[in-house]
Amino acid sequence: MTTSEEVLTELRRRVEVRRQEGKYPPDLERQLEAEFASILEVVHRGEDEVDHIAHLVTVLRQEVLSLNGLVTNQSRIPGGRLYHRVVGKIVGRQTRGVAQQTQVALQRQLDVIELIQRQLRAQRDADVRVLHQIETAIRDRLMMVDALAESVLELERKATTKS
C-alpha cells in the first residue's frame, strides 16, 4: 500500500468523480448535518421533556419511599459515631414521624405531577397524529403535482415533435 496521503488523494478523486456523476448530490454533507440538527433541535425543544418528566417522577417515587428519618452514624471525629448513635436514639421517634408525614405529602405532589405529565403526553400524541395526517396530505398533493408536471412535459415534447 502507498502512504496514507496517496490513498487519500485517490479517494478524494473518486469522490469527485461520483459527485460529477450525480451519485453524491451537491451539498450532501450539509444536508445530512442539517437533517440531524433538526432532529436534535426538536428533541431538545421539549417533545421528549415529557418522557423526561416521567423518568424523574419514577426516580423521585423511589427516593420518597426510602425516606426514613435516619442518617448515618459515620464520623471522622473520634467518639463521633457513638455520639450520633445516642442522639439518633433520643430523637428517632420524632424524625421518623416527620419523615412519614413528608412521605405522604410528597406522594400527593407526585400524583399531581404524574397527572399533568399524562395530560401532556396525550396532547403530544394527538399533535403528532395531526402532523402525520397533514404531512401525508401534503405528500399526496405533491405527488399529484409531480404527475401533472410529467404530463405537461410529455405534451410539450409531443408538441415540439409535431411542430
Partner: peptide, 9 residues
C-alpha cells in the same frame, strides 16, 4: 438522554 433519543430517531 436527548442526544441518544435523537440518534434513535
Amino acid at each position: 438522554h436527548g442526544y441518544f433519543q435523537s440518534l434513535l430517531r
